[in-house]
Design a protein around this nucleic acid. Structure first.
Lengths: 251, 251
DNA sequence: CGCTGGGTTGATGGCGATCAATCAATGTGG
DNA sequence: CCACATTGATTGATCGCCATCAACCCAGCG
């Protein structure tokens, strides 16, 4: 027993939303997880595949990536430890995007069949898994607003605010700073800009003494100012509704 | 009996994804629906509210709207008859966006409590409702790619392709044309452009003989050419995976 | 010690925003 | 029946944010 299991980040992520019943925790720990390590930029999940297992980030970061016909790339989600990166693959015929490691990343793969039979007997986990996919979608909507209507400075500030809030609740922010291994090229593909313009805009945020960002370490110097610039309201990141008394069933 | 009930579009939409069991259809018809009519641009659901019911489009169109601090607006989803517009509100504390009628719209409101108790006893509907929220998210991802990395011409072509495919499967496309009551201002807020540029870009699509769009009627003259311009691949709009044998439960 | 990946900076250009005006369709009140 | 206002489509002129192209620097590394 080394005191840390690959399922721990997921358990800890879910229990931030609702106190897990002891049955839920036992059920989760009974899942078989195949653990794999990934190098930066390598695919955890391939676009077009038909996954038979779902993937949880154990440590490090992952990002969903869409490749465009012209060779361009657009990222549409960032996943931190404890996040399912493709729980929605339970419901989709084919992956409409790939998932790539952002920096070095450890991921755990859980067979769909086990997730299904687990949910069959555990309404709380059915509820929380569904809720995970819903909260993912809320983040995607915030990105849509950034991409559609915000300036570069605003979008980048928004990204930093979102990461900061999510990582803080995951306990990965210390002294207002967190580790984030994305290159400026990666960041450009998140906010829909060129890497050159990302560079200049980050410089502007640095010049304004709002943040520092070097050596894969983001230091948030003035969160409130960043949030003001970004028009950031973190409400969409808060835990969802608890499961109602008579929760839905999946069997 | 007038042969058409407000629940019909939803039933027809769900049964396109999976053959509904007779229990499912009976359960759906037993729901109480409060029907309301909305004028163009009026809110079906208000941002910031905590809905206790979910809303289904019965006829017409609705769109999710986010309002930005500077007064700007970004739409992040279009809903056609049979779509739940806010099923995710089951899981969210507060609406992080509003839902507005696009043209005249009739909507039905179903209490969350009834949806929950229905799902408690009907795994197929639990599965299909969850799947609805997942498919919504797939569409949102496609919008992210458009907003982040596509040119105006490509984005607009993509929008038309998406609408055409969705409306065709809903049986609302005849002679390659469909009714769509959005103004150019609305369209601009979908694709993240100014209404002036939307006007010019639509003109270009017209000039190229790819579509006609007047009097709220969109006529798709050359779908394949539009899809080629847009880099449109409709795979993400296809029905999701069927419910596995041992489906999850929510009770 | 050359190579490679990532960050940084400058010069130039273009896509699309903004400002502004016109026009058609519809509606409203006198 | 006709001024008048309103909404939406359309077009032109100008401006600016950001893309693109092109260097250059630096650190890590085989």
């Amino acid at each position: 027993m080394d005191g840390s299991a690959p399922i721990d980040p997921l358990i800890s992520s879910l229990s931030r939303r609702a106190p897990l019943t002891s049955k839920s925790e036992t059920d989760l720990r009974s899942l078989s997880i195949r653990v794999r390590e990934f190098r930066p930029n390598h695919d955890l999940v391939a676009s077009g595949s038909r996954p038979r297992e779902s993937c949880v980030v154990v440590s490090g970061f992952a990002a969903r990536a869409q490749y465009l016909p012209d060779g361009g790339r657009q990222l549409d989600a960032i996943h931190i430890p404890g996040d399912f990166v493709d729980l929605h693959s339970l419901h989709l015929q084919r992956m409409d995007h790939s998932v790539a490691a952002l920096g070095p990343c450890v991921a755990g793969f859980i067979p769909h069949s086990e997730l299904i039979s687990l949910m069959r007997e555990n309404p709380q986990l059915t509820w929380l898994f569904w809720q995970s996919t819903v909260m993912d979608a809320a983040i995607a909507r915030a990105w849509i607003a950034c991409l559609g209507r915000k300036l570069a400075l605003e979008s980048l500030a928004h990204l930093v605010c979102e990461l900061c809030v999510r990582l803080r609740s995951a306990g990965q922010v210390t002294d207002a700073a967190f580790y984030f291994p994305a290159t400026q090229h990666d960041v450009a593909d998140m906010v829909g800009l060129s890497h050159v313009h990302v560079n200049r805009t980050l410089k502007e945020l640095r010049t304004k003494a709002l943040l520092e960002w070097e050596a894969q370490r983001v230091h948030v110097l003035d969160f409130d100012a960043l949030a003001a610039i970004a028009g950031f309201d973190g409400a969409y990141l808060r835990p969802g509704r608890p499961m109602p008394r008579n929760a839905p069933q999946l069997a």
